[in-house]
Design a protein around this nucleic acid. Structure first.
Lengths: 333, 333
DNA sequence: ATCGTTGATGTAACCGATTACATAATCGGT
DNA sequence: ACCGATTATGTAATCGGTTACATCAACGAT
């Protein structure tokens, strides 16, 4: 009865060579003779030997893992980015470790930036403390970013994206256009809001304070915004609203429909993200598509480049697209 | 200029003790004298020493990581379970590694079951080959399960859940009840389908072949099912449909609404999962709620128990709940 | 005074690989 | 026949901790 896993020395003994030769036969086959290679190969199969990664990693001073820090793992928006990351990291021989920045305490997060924990860090949460992440392992930021942190970023042009949405609504004849923003302090919130403000100004459209509704990207905050909108006088409230997230747009639409109003008859809606489901709700949502899988992939690729030492500092900016569906229509007369 | 990370021997030298003592001071403080402990503590701070996990793990023959194998990381259903898993594993000192079983090839997946890769495996994909996962690291199955695999399972009573849905529709007076199933061969599909069949039989209701619509849990397959349903004669087709997933229910509803039919006026719909969004679509979806976060948590806890050697073999069955919303109503006269 | 305990610490083997360096064998060139 | 270059392989140090075992001092009991 054998219980111990065979180690490299077991293979070496059986093949009649040294451990060094076995190691070479496995990792740099071109450096051993044909005969030896075959003998080692056979011994490996006979013993059922499998490399111990912990040992190799210790010697190589690497871990073979990349950590992704996400603000909320349960959010489908992030899971699709993670999917993109995983699809690149796996084939490259890296493990993807995932940590939820909201369930982990500060010390734990700091530990993730340890070189003995992971070889790199992909940050999807712009609210992390920059200082804690400095000077440890390579960092790449995706989607969101930490203002003070000098790291390659993969993102979209949020300002321009907001412009697309606003222009579309203005083209439909809407003059009173509102915006439901994301959580305060979030870098995406700021970019989308200022993009909205600029686009409206460029069109000469007004943007009074009460056309800006607070939100936090969540469904519920969209519903809350709807209640505020419903309370505003119908003659002067926005006839179209641009949302910083699809989730908020859904919450909003659900609530106004429940009050008997029609989208886009009474109100046009543009979302942000193009999460899968919004193509299937009724009405199907006009929205800004972010290439989420692509963002994840690009972030992972930049991380691999960093690890190879090919650090370019420029940001990667991926294109967005306005997806026209049925939630937007001409301004009511 | 110091670039090398301090190691335990640096701390030992500074504190004037041996490395063994430093190690003990850090991991079993009660085994060293008060003075020594203080000296070591001070040396640790002075040098900025941080433990190298790879080294410790090598010695301990563990990795500190648990792998979750998910069929599709981009699916929000799974990400919420992962969130539950992460919330337990993190505080317990384990890393969560995630692998997408669809983007990874067979060999890679097999590697994940290596003890040098991870200490345990949480499986969320019932279509994996049982043989490959045998006799390596501890395994826990969550939600889905691999039929031949003897491992603790965390799941819900899918049969009973289907019964809840069917009973609800029957109670509303529906006599022609359809079912949109999941992908063929999936254990959940089978359980929900047979639960549906049983519940209908118990009520004495018919279930002809054309009341069973194929699906694969996806939005699109729900839409496809809707097209089939729309083509059936209105006089004999189901007046209510129970779906094996919320996503399919959404796809279905979107499509029939686009054809001018009303839910629940013309058709009642019950979903499965209670993903967050379905409470906000219109009409809000009546559905079976699965405690996803709880499932993840329970799976992680069972894994921790396994690792401690407290293996109980019984399955954990978590309760489901029928959430009544507005997508179901009385059968049309 | 002697001996067995107990507690604190040091020595060195160990986890399982990789790899710098040393050594031996082979070969072509003069 | 001799020498340098090249190729294949072995020896042993190394990655950075942990821990079995040995050592030693202090102490109470006989």
């Amino acid at each position: 009865m054998k219980h111990d896993r065979p180690k490299i020395s077991d293979v070496a003994r059986l093949a009649g060579v040294s451990t060094a030769t076995v190691s070479r036969a496995l990792s740099t086959p071109e450096r051993v003779s044909e005969d030896t290679r075959a003998a080692v190969q056979q011994a490996v199969e006979a013993t059922g030997y499998r490399l111990n990664l912990a040992a190799r990693n210790l010697r190589h001073r690497r871990t073979g893992g990349i950590v992704a820090l996400v603000p909320n793992l349960a959010n489908p928006f992030f899971s699709q980015i993670l999917s993109g990351i995983a699809s690149v990291l796996g084939p490259a021989g890296y493990n993807l470790l995932i940590a939820d920045t909201r369930t982990a305490d500060a010390q734990t997060l700091l530990d993730y930036a340890e070189p003995s924990r992971a070889d790199g860090l992909i940050i999807l949460d712009g609210t992390l403390p920059a200082a804690a992440l400095q000077g440890r392992v390579p960092v790449v930021e995706a989607c969101e970013w930490v203002p003070g942190l000098p790291a390659p970023r993969v993102k979209i042009d949020n300002r321009a994206a907001a412009g697309l949405a606003v222009d579309h609504l203005a083209d439909l004849g809407h003059c009173r256009i509102g915006h439901v923003a994301g959580p305060r302090g979030n870098v995406l919130t700021e970019a989308r809001l200022s993009g909205t403000v600029e686009a409206l100004a460029a069109r000469g459209l007004p943007f009074p304070e009460d056309y800006l509704y607070p939100g936090d990207f969540s469904l519920d905050s969209g519903r809350t915004a709807a209640r505020i909108w419903l309370d505003q006088p119908a003659a002067t409230r926005p006839t179209a609203v641009f949302f910083a997230s699809d989730a908020m747009a859904c919450g909003f639409i659900g609530e106004v429909q429940r009050h008997g109003l029609r989208v886009p008859g009474d109100l046009s809606v543009v979302g942000f993200d193009d999460i899968e489901l919004v193509a299937h709700i009724s009405p199907p949502l006009t929205t800004i598509r972010q290439p989420r899988t692509e963002i994840g992939r690009a972030a992972a690729e930049r991380m691999l480049a960093c690890l190879k030492g090919e650090a370019r500092d420029a940001d990667t900016v991926l294109p967005v697209e306005l997806i026209l569906r049925a939630s937007t229509g001409p301004a009511p007369a």
